[in-house]
Design a protein around this nucleic acid. Structure first.
Length: 101
DNA sequence: ATTATGACCGAAG
DNA sequence: GCTTCGGCCATAA
């Protein structure tokens, strides 16, 4: 597991239930906003070994994005946490975003 | 060292 | 809204 991946997961596991973060926000937190793509690249790698709320990471546009177990599963999990989703997008992204105090 | 790939993003049509 | 394209970066081969 690379250092970069560790950093990504350490951030993701901080996201509280009922909240979400975007790939871009995580990227910025890691030092460079352009890391967004690399972040999405790292998530699927260790999901089999480490328990982390990968489903709480969505796109900046508000669309849920992809998920190891399938988008349907991702939406289901988010919905269980009280997050409203409409046609594959977060109903009110601004209210759900977690900014890493 | 070089190339290709992907859970991304923004601009443009 | 949607699609297409170019640009990003870490990784794997």
């Amino acid at each position: 597991m690379t250092e970069f991946e560790k950093n990504v997961f350490n951030l993701v596991k901080k996201i509280p239930k009922g909240k979400v973060a975007t790939y871009q926000i995580l990227a910025k937190k890691l030092g460079n906003i352009k890391l967004a793509r690399a972040v999405g690249n790292a998530l699927p790698k260790n999901s089999h070994f480490i328990i982390i709320p990968c489903h709480r990471v969505v796109k900046t546009s508000g669309k849920v994005g992809n998920y190891v177990l399938g988008v349907a599963k991702k939406i289901k999990l988010l919905h269980n946490e009280g997050i409203r989703i409409k046609r594959g997008k977060i109903a009110d992204l601004a209210k759900c975003l977690y900014y890493f105090n």
